[in-house]
Design a protein around this nucleic acid. Sequence first.
DNA 1: TGGGATATTATGGGATATCATGGGAACTTA
DNA 2: TAAGTTCCCATGATATCCCATAATATCCCA
Lengths: 159, 159
Amino acid sequence: MDLFLSTFEHRIDKKGRLSVPAPFRSVLERRRDPLYLFKSLTEPCLEGCGPERIGQIVDAIDAMDSLSAEVATLHTMLSSAQEMKLDAEGRIMLNADFIAFAELDDAALYAGIGRSFQIWLPDRYRSREAEARARAKTTGLPSLRLGRTHQPPAENGGS
Amino acid sequence: MDLFLSTFEHRIDKKGRLSVPAPFRSVLERRRDPLYLFKSLTEPCLEGCGPERIGQIVDAIDAMDSLSAEVATLHTMLSSAQEMKLDAEGRIMLNADFIAFAELDDAALYAGIGRSFQIWLPDRYRSREAEARARAKTTGLPSLRLGRTHQPPAENGGS
DNA sequence: TGGGATATTATGGGATATCATGGGAACTTA
DNA sequence: TAAGTTCCCATGATATCCCATAATATCCCA
């Protein structure tokens, strides 16, 4: 399974173009997947994914009560989603809405998180990362102590 | 699967003409589908789709108790539906009924929601989107974990 | 194992095509 | 005939294509 991993910081040029990191591109090319971006529902960043995720949302909507608030939430995801076309150099063009939402200016940081990746304002990402590590030290310790049964973050032995 | 995604804001000119976003047009052209518009049942907006969606509604009606109130509701969708002809530049003309129903004046916002799209008064759409995002932050994501393990709001499985 | 040759990558800029939009003129229809 | 609509063309903005370049990574062969 090939995954989106590591972080990359790239410049956004005057025309609004942004290179997709070569390792991410080769993951997509290997699967012949187009790239979709959408605005995160929970954080000030963009999310990148393949078509499977988009198809899931579409199918979930069709299966749901169209009057529910959940459908409205899913509509929001779809109406912010966009298939990104890469130019010959592997760049995408971010529209004004995307740039404003993630508050980007002249640079963007890609953070690979496995099956998907995020695009952040670089400084904001770094401070969030620092916060996350600090949080892990305080709130992570107690949960490690009582851990024995069904724990999501429990894999190979313990580390 | 080509879908209607993303949002586009276009002007309605003095003659009442409105451009259909080029990406939406190319979805329809690829399928050689005409475009249908009808008044939404649930919101003050117009819905746009191809003929297969209209067919689904017709089939749903045929499968229901023809005396039920739901059938009467679905009839409303069909009777407001209209095949839109595009001019050479890819524009449609909205009739007065459509404009009044969605309360449009000199601009319209297209919101792609997968197999169909909506047309909104731009400001109204944006406030609804803000509400939906606020709701998503507190309530969380609708259940999208079809079969898989629960994941953060993006993933990218192989296809 | 070096170290030059080659390929890849990120980035920039000019030229070209596409798109949204506007307006005039011909046409339809009531 | 008058109002509205359709056809056609013009235009500015913007996205896309194509090429250039510098920096880095990879390859290759002695």
